[in-house]
Design a binder for these strands. Structure first.
Lengths: 347, 347
DNA sequence: GTGAAAGCGCTAACAC
DNA sequence: GTGTTAGCGCTTTCAC
């Protein structure tokens, strides 16, 4: 049997006023804690509020006041640990400053991204933190900025738009990583990165190339794969790289999803202890693998915090200086896999 | 130098109507795609909309219509992979059905949880999916349910409240896990779980005890720790358990944060290949450890999907049957660590 | 210290 | 096909 509760309608200020025998305005004063209200009235009104379970209707307030104290965040995938940590950092900053955060995943779909941005702006967000997807409609972003929605772009830039950006030193970090492998004697390094159309993927690959150039070495393009790590379809390509006539002695990856995939493949081939490995972006338990996974670590929490603080300062008018383009540093964490001599070293 | 864009105010339907030379109502018709509008008028209005960058004000619409097509989700920590996957599943269901999702972390704070729930309900969410924190105000939840906010509780129940719940078979899963270790010859098993005040933590510990009872074995309470895995402060306790006069031959954990902590400790002690390990809740890369981590896996995506579908069916009146209390099954994944004979086995 | 009236931007109801 | 009026629940303005 169902035990359906009788639903009384959500009470309004009008209901509270009626119950307390005062005017709507007085209830408003009590709810907002402004102006003076006699102790007695306060008591009566508060009793009525508790009694009825009154909760102020935010729409009505925001409609009238025109302010929402809300910011939006559009990232690629909440389920990705990199982004989930970033979100949590944004959330903490927002909540501490009294803002509500609306967060959603674009799922790498330009269409879904557009829907989310429209949904957020039509909900009157004061500002938006966006990880622009490759197909994101720049015109839409520009239009929203022009109609007063402050924006901060994270992880990837939105060229030409008047907004702050918070990026990672992808190129420098990747160069440092590749140089580390080269310094350990690796001249043939497989590189598995995401689709080169992605800003971060391209930057990291460039950093990889920089290291070879700096060392005066040639890169074998046959050892590089630039594609989305999700589909298992590219396993053929991975196998082809590892089975090359002159195979790589090390593997470097451009993001943590590729890292997981590459490590699984090495493991399946029994190469974990031989093939050197270095991944861009840290991942939990990287330290517990055998050997530990050497990585170029980003700091997603710092990215989120930085972006949120920048955005709120803009929104609150505390900062009206030129737009900032911040590059956060990466750090090399040596855990063993990147320090291996490779399968063909003389041991 | 700053390049501040001139901000024109966000245009309203009134502005569009003026620009197009029609009435506000006609603009409304075009925006909502209802009723017939002449092709010519449609053209003119749409042109004005694009020209001005008009975006319908959701507050006003929702205020008038009384419906929001929004649901809220209050979990503990977006940064926790278990929850982030759950969120993503809820998000996908919500978006597919045309709902906007508001998601936020309670950060295990009853106060923050209360703020979030009030914030969501005062934004008129049609329903709420909640992972109730230990200190969550049941009175508040009841009051919100009574005023028409449909709720579904996930991961932990909210006893006595008229709502659906989606839980995991914590006790059965933990019992299966412990029985698995016992079957591999372990009679002294350390158990590291979260604070027993947490519903899931208590259920899993009970399942652990069940397995011992079923096997006719005694449990040494000195080998059990029930506390939040976060603070490094309890490392003393962990060490004491592992250094007991008669030490455990296996370690079982009650959640993935304890798993990580326990595995780090075993690794630091050089025990990874000797001490059997079994964790409740799977984690990424568990398969890549040496040996692979044997776990009792939950399916957070299924939990999120199930909860979201239940909630939307209620909201849309497709289901007005009795409240359901769903228990999702767990699955034992053998990867090696749970099948070790333990450090004192004769080899 | 408290109340009455107007209006935020939109849509429901009903004219025309 | 299109326009007019009223009102959602709240805050602002101004009167008492």
């Amino acid at each position: 049997m169902t035990t359906r509760t009788a639903h009384r309608a959500r009470p309004t200020m009008h209901d509270v006023a009626l119950a307390a025998g005062v005017s709507v305005k007085t209830v408003s004063r009590v709810v907002n804690g402004v102006d003076y209200v006699s102790a007695e009235t306060l008591q009566v009104v508060n009793a009525a509020i508790d009694e009825l379970g009154f909760r102020r209707n935010e729409f009505a307030r925001q409609l009238r006041q025109g302010t929402t104290a809300t910011i939006g965040l559009v990232i690629e995938d909440i389920g990705d640990p990199f982004y989930s940590v970033l979100i949590r950092a944004v959330e903490d900053v927002a909540l501490a400053r009294g803002y509500t955060l609306l967060a959603a995943s674009s799922a790498e779909s330009a269409e879904r991204s557009r829907r989310l941005i429209e949904s957020f702006t039509s909900r009157g967000v004061d500002g938006l933190i966006v990880v622009p997807a490759s197909g994101t409609d720049v015109g839409l972003l520009r239009s929203e900025i022009e109609t007063g929605c402050t924006m901060v772009f994270v992880d990837r830039p939105a060229p030409g738009l008047p907004a702050d950006t918070v990026l990672v030193d992808n190129r420098g970090g990747a160069m440092q990583g590749a140089a580390h492998l080269i310094a350990h004697g690796h001249h043939r390094i497989a590189y598995f990165g995401d689709d080169a159309a992605l800003f971060t993927a391209a930057e990291r690959r460039d950093g990889f190339l920089d290291a070879f150039a700096a060392a005066g070495l040639d890169v074998d393009p046959a050892l590089t794969i630039m594609t989305n790590p999700h589909p298992e379809s590219s396993q053929d390509e991975v196998d082809r790289v590892l089975d090359a006539a002159e195979p790589p002695t090390a593997v470097m990856t451009g993001n943590n999803r590729w890292s997981v995939r590459a490590l699984r493949t090495l493991r399946a081939r029994g190469l974990s202890a031989d093939m050197a490995f270095l991944g861009f972006d840290d991942f939990e338990l990287g330290d517990l693998l055998t050997p530990g996974a050497t990585v170029i670590a980003q700091d997603p929490a710092a990215m989120g915090r930085t972006a949120a603080e920048l955005l709120l300062r803009r929104i609150e008018g505390l900062d009206d200086g030129p737009h900032q383009h911040i590059r956060l540093a990466t750090s090399l964490i040596e855990r063993g896999s990147g320090e291996l001599p490779g399968p063909f070293a003389t041991r």
